[in-house]
Design a binder for these strands. Sequence first.
DNA 1: AAAACTGTAATTGTCTGACATTAAAAAAGC
DNA 2: GCTTTTTTAATGTCAGACAATTACAGTTTT
Lengths: 243, 243
Amino acid sequence: MKIDPDSSADLSAQIATAIRDEIIAGRLIVDARLPSEAELADHFNVSRPTVREALKRLAAQSLIRTQRGATGGAFVNRISFPEAYAQQITTSTLLLSMNDVSFETACEARFALERSCAALCAHRRSADHLADMRAEVHRQSQLGLTDEAFCASDVTFHRALVDGAGNPVLSYQLAGAVEAMQPLMNMITFSARDRARIVALHVAIADAVEAQDGGAVAAGLTALEVETQTLAARVFAARAAQS
Amino acid sequence: MKIDPDSSADLSAQIATAIRDEIIAGRLIVDARLPSEAELADHFNVSRPTVREALKRLAAQSLIRTQRGATGGAFVNRISFPEAYAQQITTSTLLLSMNDVSFETACEARFALERSCAALCAHRRSADHLADMRAEVHRQSQLGLTDEAFCASDVTFHRALVDGAGNPVLSYQLAGAVEAMQPLMNMITFSARDRARIVALHVAIADAVEAQDGGAVAAGLTALEVETQTLAARVFAARAAQS
DNA sequence: AAAACTGTAATTGTCTGACATTAAAAAAGC
DNA sequence: GCTTTTTTAATGTCAGACAATTACAGTTTT
């Protein structure tokens, strides 16, 4: 591992970067044990708290895990899909909420990405995925559902569609796009008529998935995108007029 | 902010989670200043090093930035697109390299996602994006290029295509998919004939983008996917036979 | 009066040293 | 040979101190 001269950056940041580079370059493989904190401190010529801060940075990115006890230490972590999902969702959500990304832009990206699953999902979907989609459609049709519950069910429906493509990498990438939209969707209040239209489109999509007609799935998603965009435009216009 | 009982988890992890939740929920807005480390230590009833470890965890995710001096402290950071790109790429790259994701699966996901930009890029592409694509095609045609330089140019070409869609959220999501493939692509050695075929497909895609024909862009990407998959299959088969 | 300088206070960055906690391995006892 | 106890090595936490940095106010100089 490289050394850190007395540059302007934090020592802990430099050390974290040095170790991260080792992991990315493959010189530290999964489950390899890092030297103990005392050894690292000695190696980098810093104190143990500084090393610890560096290790915590890496732990925050799920790059390492730590274990106490005699044979404990810091180990290179095999980043799991669920962990990657979670990071992806957090980053995407904050990116959207902090950068004044318009609803249109986010919505366009989300549906563009989801359409990329249409053909694969139509081709590969299992009975389970289809059943999940039908179940969510049924849930959405119930009266007296809160807006938040409606949106949550919407997300579950779309995740079933994405997972139906049977490609974990695709599911991972889409997780951010679909979940990060939820806070934006929650800003909208859905009237009974709006919900009925959305549910009808969901039914059409589920039918297309069942028929394994990729083109129809994509068309259904496009129709849903148009519906969502016009609905959002109406809500935001009304809200702007009110204030 | 909530307190942390003496549960089994690390105190610094609990504190980091508590603060992260405040940020995600919007109770701590961008550029808001967190209490000083001493105040946080007092509030959570822990020592300052523990608080610092928590803050470093958040800094590693670009959720906060710190500043020294009299009016310094920790501030909620507006996560920028470049920062989000970098995190996305790191996570995606490690996810692929550590989880035995097959080349086919990763490649399928990557091209499926990229096709989602085809129509938008064809519609919106600027002259700049087109020029970038042409420039990369020209670079790829040069003889004596190393495999790595060829792959790097390939990535730049595809990023120009993605950016041509004019949707920053889409560019962000695709960054991970496109860049994370590079290490996998670098495992392949491209013969002159292979390169010529790929360049020809790139030319076809650039032509389609210039003609603003979204369907042709998507078709070109599909052809490129087929070419890449068969090429990779041949390389891996040859390598397997050799050993 | 304006500008340059200086000191002070607040805050993060780092170090030292210590103790608590944990969990595996070695040793002891039966 | 098995169970129990002790040892040991590692992380987790704490307390206190000092260094480095920066804004601000007050002072001096021009």
